[in-house]
Design a protein around this nucleic acid. Structure first.
Lengths: 334, 334
DNA sequence: GAGCGCTATCTAATCGATTAGATGCGAGAA
DNA sequence: TTCTCGCATCTAATCGATTAGATAGCGCTC
């Protein structure tokens, strides 16, 4: 069994025509085909269960219909959701998605880009956790378009699609002020690069007039934020109002606060800046500024597949605002 | 710019040899090459920045090194983690991963399988949310191997890699009994198919002697479990000890319980059966039986890529046990 | 010194779809 | 009747890597 899949030539033979005509029928080809012939071809194709070989087509037409997605880690809810939307946006445009998880290693990122280029992808979507290194450079050298989503290197040629981080932070600060908070702390990442750096600067600006703003730092994991929270509570140094740069960190803060018996939102008002689906069903539910992940994914894919690359591509593209979703953790809805 | 990528022929010309020799060098080919010639070829390849065209290779050698992964939804943490591990297992074996999210639609699942087959994938990993329809059937008809992970149809020919669901449930029940609970409820999905059906049956067996076991049902979402919990609490019908079939549901229960002021674990002891990374930092942290997702992914990939398909493939393969991880939600660690 | 064996290399067919150029055929014009 | 135009179709080159078969060159042996 496992008989050889049927080819264009098989269909042509069965329909009593040439491969050219079959091809014209399959693609509504560059040339017309008589109605009667078209019928015969379609019938033959159906009977043989013909499935066009995209590899052969790709070799000839120099376009595969496949886009590579370089991800940090699909098991992180934020990146997972982004990946899902990118795949969806590509599917809507009849493209297939090759994925790879680079973790947080620039080396593995390079390696993936290399493998995707060898696979002749039509384009590359790069979701990089940090701004170190221009992973898109080899792609551009090979004439393959690339787009960064969420984050990108400073000097790169590839466009970067990001959310409106400044607006999100301003909205979060304003909302906590409405709840009466005078002093609003910020939980940033270990370094000020990428979107979180932007968020931190926006926070700096927004709380410029406040007395002694508190800046906290920990790595982007639940575990780290949990540990930090426990320590601060035990030292009596926990702020009363906090903006967490990422959902992961906010969830860790919630976990640590629960473990210490620190009530949220009564003793800690918390807002997070990602707004992944995770945030809606924490205990208590997180107030977030919701990044328009689907809009970002669509914008990125459009940029990638739009035929004419502008001479001077916009280095940074913002895709929609990050709307504030009030839930329980800030003090709303009590 | 965007000059044509260099080919085998370019390298051969530059090295003053034939394409055959270059190919032999690149693959440590089926024939040996003199050391001096090999040097010249490697130098030429490096100077030209030669990158082998995997599409051309695939056409000739009838194997692409690409595996298709049909997923329900990468933004669900359980499926996201599974996807990440499958990709990792494939990467370790030098394969690339094509992904597609089928949502919960059998129609879209079929569509994806069709597209992956057209792309000439070497195999298919299917992570299906339910047991409706044998998505692997068209692949088998085309001679492409397929494996189900997490779940699979009853009568299919493709192997199904799943966790030890019965053992997990027995462990969870036993653990709650150790905490002194006499009556242990179970939160299942809307229907008794797939792994959750197996879990429900195992629960049935484990609580067979108990007085009036309580079986709850809701769909596999945080929202549904949250709503169900609020209703039960308001009706005074909430059980004191509960096993949730999935992490998503357990997190929804936690969220609903928090909103109603029902303390966990004091008034509700809760254990969940997935054990995704999510479960470690909820408030309170969830006690879970942890499915060996990486082991499952590796087993599936091995099954897929192992050369000889056994005449009668084992219909169901279990990959490791699901160990109980005691945390706070069951009453441990107070 | 003719013949043999061995290695290193070259030539060319092949995978399956695409498509430019060549061909065949019939209708209408002159 | 013959010539021309246009449509429908066929022929064959092409994409780039792989690899079986052919060949060239060298060292040995008898």
């Amino acid at each position: 069994m496992t008989k050889r899949a049927s080819t264009l030539a098989d269909v042509a033979r069965r329909a009593g025509t040439s491969t050219a005509v079959v091809s014209y029928v399959m693609n509504n080809g560059p040339r017309p085909v008589a109605a009667a012939t078209r019928e015969r071809v379609l019938a033959a194709a159906a009977e043989l269960g013909y499935r066009p070989n995209r590899i052969a087509r790709a070799l000839r037409s120099r376009t595969t219909g496949v886009v590579g997605l370089v991800l940090a880690d699909a098991s992180n809810p934020y990146f997972g959701a982004l990946a899902r939307f990118v795949e969806q946006a590509l599917e809507w445009r009849e493209r297939l998605t090759l994925v790879g998880n680079a973790g947080f290693s620039a080396e593995r990122q390079r390696h993936l880009v290399e493998r995707f280029l060898a696979a002749q992808v039509d384009g590359l979507v790069i979701v990089s956790p940090d701004t170190a290194g221009d992973a898109a450079a080899p792609a551009e050298a090979a004439g393959v378009p690339a787009v960064y989503v969420h984050n990108g290197p400073a000097g790169g040629r590839a466009p970067v699609v990001a959310a409106d981080n400044e607006g999100a932070v301003r909205a979060a600060v304003a909302h906590l002020r409405e709840h009466g908070h005078r002093s609003i702390a910020f939980l940033a990442g270990p370094h000020d690069d990428g979107p979180v750096g932007v968020r931190r600067e926006a926070w700096d600006a927004a709380v410029a007039g406040d007395p002694a703003p508190v800046l906290l730092r920990c790595s982007y994991s639940r575990a780290a934020a949990d540990a930090l929270t426990r320590r601060l509570v035990s030292e009596g140094a926990m702020p009363r109002a906090l903006i967490a740069a990422t959902d992961e960190q906010a969830i860790g803060v919630l976990s640590g606060a629960w473990a210490c018996g620190l009530p949220v939102p009564d003793r800690l008002a918390l807002i997070s800046l990602d707004g992944t689906p995770e945030s809606a069903y924490t205990a208590p539910a997180l107030t977030v500024t919701e990044q328009p992940l689907l809009a970002m994914a669509e914008r990125a894919v459009d940029l990638l597949l739009s035929p004419g690359t502008p001479a001077e591509p916009p280095a940074r593209v913002e895709a929609g605002v990050a709307a504030l979703v009030p839930r329980r953790s800030c003090g709303c809805g009590g």
